[in-house]
Simulated assay, not measured.
Amino acid sequence: SSRMVVRCVAAALSDVPPTVAETKMNFLKSYKRPIPSIYNSVLQELLVQQHLMRYKRTYQYDPVFALGFVTVYEKLMEGYPSSNDQDAIFRAYIQALNEDPEQYRRDAQKLEEWARTQDANSLVAFSSRDGEIENMLKSISQRAQGKGNFSYSRFFAVGLFRLLELANATEPSILEKLCAALNINKRSVDRDLDVYRNLLSKLVQAKELLKEYVDREKKKREERVEPQTSNEAVTKCIADVHVASR
């Protein structure tokens, strides 16, 4: 009986989700290099938000969510100094949440490729067709209706919008129809897309300020180097004159 108790306790402990602090620590252990604060502050905020989504009881990974996250991440990291670091940060971030970064990338790519071949009508009519992506969307629709685990999130909203963008179908009426087909509350999607747009706008402004600062510092350094270079030239010239006059 004591063994059974131990097994029960072990099983219970394995169901206990990690804390936000543990998820953050996992990220820092995986990616040890410093991240510029303009990127890091948003990344940390997203990581906390995603941790809370990830460990909800109703959470189930889905490709639209993945597409949304990949879209947000790529927008956030636009202009990052190194593309290798960008990829390494992505992997560290997703692994910190005990998920598979390759699956995120793979599913996002599949959805993007599919959406590019769609138009407004075919996108909304996914439930009447068969196919890998159509079946994914049908599964989401059923789960969102209450037949299984589904947890709506901001990343899901961004994923939906990305599908519409790629299908050149961004009219509000199409979004409304797609939300209805997926059993998603359009009001929530609208609200979250507004938040997303505001975030992008703030990021653009912050990156512009950062660029101005970097350019200004670079110019200052160049200005400091110029007098030094001219001084060295003058010194050399004087030395040459001395040598010549001997």
Rank of each mutant, 00 (worst) to 15 (best):
S1M: 14
S1F: 00
S2H: 04
S2R: 13
R7M: 11
A10C: 07
A10T: 11
L13Y: 14
S14I: 02
V20W: 00
E22I: 14
K24M: 13
M25W: 11
N26F: 14
F27C: 00
K29V: 12
S37L: 14
S41K: 09
Q49W: 05
Q50G: 05
H51P: 05
L52Y: 04
R54H: 09
Y55K: 13
K56I: 04
K56C: 08
T58Q: 07
T58W: 03
Q60L: 12
Y61Q: 00
Y61S: 02
Y61T: 01
P63V: 07
A66R: 04
K75P: 01
K75S: 12
L76G: 07
S82E: 08
S83I: 15
S83E: 15
D87G: 15
F90P: 06
Y93C: 10
I94S: 13
I94A: 14
Q95G: 13
N98P: 06
E99M: 13
P101T: 11
D107F: 07
E112T: 04
E112H: 04
R116I: 08
R116K: 10
Q142F: 05
Q145A: 15
G146T: 00
G148R: 09
F150C: 08
S151N: 04
F156H: 07
F156N: 03
V158L: 08
V158P: 01
A167Y: 03
N168G: 02
T170S: 04
S173C: 05
E176K: 15
K177V: 12
I184S: 03
R187H: 08
D190E: 10
D194I: 11
N198S: 07
L200F: 03
L203H: 00
K207V: 12
K207N: 03
L209H: 10
E212W: 01
D215L: 11
R221K: 12
E222Y: 10
E223Q: 12
V225H: 00
E226T: 11
E226I: 13
P227G: 13
I238L: 15
D240A: 12
D240G: 08
